[in-house]
Design a protein around this nucleic acid. Structure first.
Length: 464
DNA sequence: GTAGGGTTAG
């Protein structure tokens, strides 16, 4: 049987990108798929014509393989990594998800080294490579993932030098980065620029700018933009109106927001309020400490035939619990128990809402009630409650809850970090049988020990 | 593209 000690030893060989060439080779052959290796080989074979070399690879291109190639390029050849990433984005059988864009930024450390993008564009030019609009859009989306407005603007300007005409989507990407950075004037300037080169701003362009204007509290400007878009034949939809409604909640009054909602309810299909619209208003009431009113919005939403989702319930139950309206919160979940989200999930949301309202005792009691009634709590709720119990020094309490969750089949959804925290606690208090049980489960599930730094030092005597 | 525990896997 594995012991606590063996798990700790075992975890010391957790894969991490190594530095020495030999270790790298072992890592390379152990953790990379055949296809990633093939792409890497071709990527390095003819560095003067990377794309052509890559195009001869027959292996299947998938997300896992993209991530592996990037990992291997990260340390020494980040530029090659990006060239591969851009090439892969244009591959007919593959599309990068937005998650993959963030992952690429992280792996290649684009935030710290924005120069890489500049260097790549220079490389393309030096090679006389025919860069397409699509390729530039990949670079733009990398700028967005690294939230680099400066680089986004730079890439947008560079496009023309390659004979590429930026399209509406290219502008939208840069406008969104600027809005996120609060650089509204520059975003507006780009909007005007689009008009001057006969590019049509679309719904996405307007939603981005309107959101920026609303966040800044300029409701009048937002309404002005609505007029502009109508004039340009872009008919505002529920997304646009929901964005404005959020602005009214934040910077106007709730009365005004109610009126605005009333107006939307009378509109035709495209503009009718949706789940997000109602949730936005619920959030508006909750943030003003009027959760009881928010409950009425939920009813109004249900009456109009829309199903509230998780976000709706999280927003509302958080508000009710913060105001101590726990009875009302129960009424809400009982009323909607068979309606889409599911009772286990609703109950979990309520327990977590109490937790976030710092009503820890009530929240833990309700969590235990859930388990006693055979309801399955979700991972976030279980993790939050157990983590707190352990941090209060009630290690065995945490252990018993772990056992209960294991029996109910929901232990797997608990954050893997908590396994380690619990194991450290059990070891420190010399609960050997209990640690053994936990170790078995961890080994069985392939969960590595990742003690927080301070605890790792305390664990020193176990690893010797 | 709008509300936004984090979920799958990406």
């Amino acid at each position: 049987m594995p012991t606590a000690i063996s798990v700790i030893r075992y975890s010391s060989i957790t894969p991490q990108t190594p530095n020495s060439p030999l270790k790298k080779f072992i890592f390379f052959s152990k953790y990379s798929s055949i296809s990633a290796q093939e792409f890497l080989t071709h990527l390095q074979r003819d560095q003067s014509n990377v794309e052509k070399s890559l195009s001869t690879v027959k292996s299947k291109l998938d997300s896992q393989c993209v991530a592996q190639v990037l990992e291997h390029c990260a340390v020494e050849k980040p530029k090659l990594g990006i060239r591969f990433f851009v090439w892969a984005a244009l591959h007919p059988t593959h599309r990068h998800t937005s998650h993959m864009y963030s992952k690429a930024c992280k792996l290649l450390n684009l935030e710290k080294n924005p120069r890489i993008i500049v260097d790549i564009v220079d490389e393309y030019r030096a090679e006389g490579f025919a860069v397409s609009v699509k390729m530039f859009k990949v670079l733009l989306n990398l700028c967005r993932a690294s939230e680099d407005a400066q680089m986004g603007l730079w890439v947008l300007r560079k496009m023309k030098e390659f004979g590429c005409m930026p399209d509406t989507v290219s502008y939208n990407v840069v406008i969104r980065i600027l809005v996120a950075k609060g650089r509204l004037d520059e975003a507006m300037e780009l909007l005007r620029e689009m008009g001057s080169i006969n590019l049509y701003p679309d719904m996405v362009t307007y939603v981005s700018i309107i959101k920026g204007v609303c966040d800044a509290g300029n409701l009048e400007a937002a309404l002005g933009l609505i007029k502009d878009m109508k004039r340009h034949g872009c008919v505002p939809n529920a997304v646009v109106y929901s964005t404005i409604l959020d602005g009214i909640c934040m910077h106007g009054s709730l009365d005004m927001a109610l009126q605005f909602l009333g107006g939307m309810e009378k509109e035709n299909e495209e503009c009718k309020p949706n789940v997000v619209t109602y949730t936005t208003l619920i959030k508006g009431f909750v943030e003003k400490g009027m959760s009881n009113e928010a409950v009425r919005i939920l009813d109004r939403m249900a009456n109009s035939g829309l199903r509230p989702n998780r976000v709706t319930f999280v927003t509302l139950l958080d508000g009710l619990c913060k105001e101590g309206l726990v009875k009302e919160a129960h009424e809400v979940i009982d009323k909607f128990r068979d309606d889409g989200v599911g009772y286990d999930e609703l109950y979990s949301i309520l327990v977590l809402a109490l937790f976030r309202a710092e009503k820890f005792k009530e929240s833990e009691e309700m969590f235990r009630t859930m388990l006693a009634r055979g309801l399955k709590p979700n991972g976030l709720t279980s993790s939050s409650i157990i983590k707190r119990i352990i941090s209060e020094g009630r290690v065995l309490d945490g252990y018993f809850l772990f056992q209960t969750l294991e029996k109910s089949g929901t232990l797997l959804s608990v954050d893997p970090a908590i396994y380690s925290i619990l194991l450290v606690g059990l070891c420190q208090e010399n609960h050997l049988t209990e640690s053994g049980w936990l170790v078995n489960i961890m080994v069985e599930r392939g969960i590595n020990l990742k003690p927080p730094h301070s605890d790792a030092q305390k664990l020193g005597h176990f690893t010797r």
